[in-house]
Computed example of a mutant assay.
Amino acid sequence: MDVMNWGILGAANFARQHMGPAIHAARGARLAALATSSAEKAQHFINFAPDLKVHDSYDALLADPEIEAVYIPLPNTLHVEWTAKALAAGKHVLCEKPIAMQAEEIDTLIAARDASGKFATEAYMIVHHPQWQLARQWLDEGQIGELRHADVVFSFNNSDPENIRNKPETGGGSIPDIGVYAYSSVRYSARAEPRDLRAIIHRENAVDTFTQVTGAMENAKGAFTYSAITSTRLHPRQEVTFQGSDGLIRLSCPFNPNVFDQAEVTLIRAGKPDCVQRFPGVNHYVLQVESFVRHIREGAPYPWTLEDARGTQAMIDLVRASEI
């Protein structure tokens, strides 16, 4: 399989710490270029990718004929613009979440993807992790009987006013930053969509810092109640639980394995020993890049499309519209 040359638009900390190394470590991929005007920031990437080509602008990187795919870790409000530009430049695109600020914006990206003949998707890495694939399998198999309730908590404490997550002009807030996990994870694993939602939202500086969503979701098997809390002002916590008539599935480190804790998913049923599956050292960022490459090179199925991202953004839009 030919190696796919990747470029990154911007030297974001997340790209430096996670996605840059993941691209360079993934089979079939190579981090070949970076767009940044900061020599200091570029050096952090050169340390693990010595042959890195550094462009001084995003447009210059998109014009580089050696680059086949780009990863976009820019502020949320720039995702649609630069995804569209990258597609127009003939590049495949992996863009950070949320890929848009409203569901309708993703329609333009779907059209741009189809017109370009290139692949574009949102960097929703958890669907590549075996713990989530196992949770989905258990739910499909009915291992906990009838699914009756799902609840999610994802929080961390970040009050830095200079952080882009706390700035309205860059699309900050707990809903776009981590709501995509709290909402998408249940949509993906239970194959469900929201039916009725209510939201309590607390804000600082026009940015939501705490959101509690309650209501119902529904899949082909029926409806179940749903609860999700996201916050950027609480002590770090993350957990997802699916509770059924005959048991429950619990993920104790669902979103940041190897950072928050070790990935672990547990199946609990009355009268049976607990089934605990742990995944030490699995890097879902690397798996995401490898899946991306296989999809383009071999036509392998890819578990998260722009249409999937649109569904989550529609749910985010509904959460905001359901504030009480």
Results as ranks from 00 to 15, higher is better:
Val259Met: 05
Pro280Lys: 10
Arg250Tyr: 04
Val276Gly: 13
Ile249His: 02
Thr266Gly: 11
Pro273Asn: 05
Cys253Phe: 03
Phe279Asp: 07
Leu267Cys: 07
Pro280Asn: 15
Pro254Gly: 07
Phe255Asp: 00
Pro257Asn: 06
Leu251Ala: 05
Leu248Asn: 03
Pro273Tyr: 05
Pro254Phe: 04
Gln262Ala: 14
Phe255Gln: 00
Asp274Gly: 09
Val259Glu: 04
Asp261Leu: 15
Lys272Pro: 09
Ala270His: 14
Leu267Ile: 10
Gly247Leu: 00
Gln277Val: 12
Leu251Gly: 01
Cys275Phe: 12
Ile268Glu: 13
Gly247Glu: 00
Glu264Trp: 13
Gln277Glu: 06
His284Gly: 03
Ala263Val: 10
Val276Ile: 08
Asn258Pro: 15
Asp274Gln: 15
Asn256Thr: 10
Pro257Arg: 04
Gly271Leu: 13
Asn258Trp: 05
Gly281Glu: 14
Pro273Val: 15
Glu264Ile: 08
Leu267Lys: 01
Ile268Arg: 06
Arg278Gln: 08
Lys272Tyr: 12
Val259Thr: 09
Cys253Ile: 02
Phe255Asn: 00
Leu267Trp: 05
Gln277Thr: 07
Leu251Tyr: 01
Gln262Val: 08
Val282Met: 05
Arg278Glu: 11
Val282Gly: 03
Arg269Glu: 07
Val286Thr: 04
Ile268Ala: 12
Val259Gly: 04
Val276Asp: 14
Phe279Ala: 04
Gly271Ile: 14
Tyr285Ile: 07
Leu251Met: 13
Asp261Pro: 09
Arg269Thr: 13
Val282Arg: 07
Phe260Leu: 04
Ile249Asp: 00
Pro273Trp: 08
His284Asn: 04
Val286Leu: 06
Tyr285Gly: 02
Phe279Leu: 09
Pro254Trp: 03
Gly271Pro: 10
Arg278His: 06
Gly247Met: 02
Pro257Tyr: 01
Ile268Met: 15
Thr266Ile: 15
Ile249Ala: 02
Leu248Tyr: 06
Pro280Trp: 12
Val276Phe: 11
Pro257Gln: 06
Thr266Ser: 11
Pro257Met: 13
Asp274Ile: 15
Thr266Glu: 14
Arg269Gly: 08
Val265Ile: 11
Gly281Cys: 15
Gly271Trp: 06
Ser252Val: 15
Gln277Arg: 14
Asn258Asp: 12
Cys275Thr: 08
Arg269Ala: 07
Arg278Tyr: 07
Asn256Phe: 05
Ala270Gln: 13
Val276Leu: 06
Arg250Val: 05
Phe260Tyr: 14
Gln262Tyr: 07
Val286Ala: 03
Pro273Ser: 09
Val276Asn: 13
Cys275Asn: 05
Val282Asn: 01
Arg250Thr: 05
Arg278Leu: 15
Pro273Gly: 09
Asn256Ser: 10
Asn283Trp: 03
Ile249Trp: 00
Phe255Trp: 02
Cys275Glu: 10
Asn283Val: 05
His284Pro: 00
Ile268Thr: 12
Cys253Met: 01
Phe255Arg: 00
His284Lys: 04
Gly281Gln: 14
Val282Trp: 00
Phe255Ala: 04
Asn258Gly: 09
Asp274Ser: 12
Asp274Phe: 12
Cys253Arg: 01
Val276Gln: 10
Val259Phe: 06
Val286His: 00
Lys272Ser: 06
Leu267Arg: 00
Val265His: 02
Asn283Glu: 13
Gln262Gly: 07
Ala270Thr: 10
Asn256Tyr: 14
Arg278Ile: 15
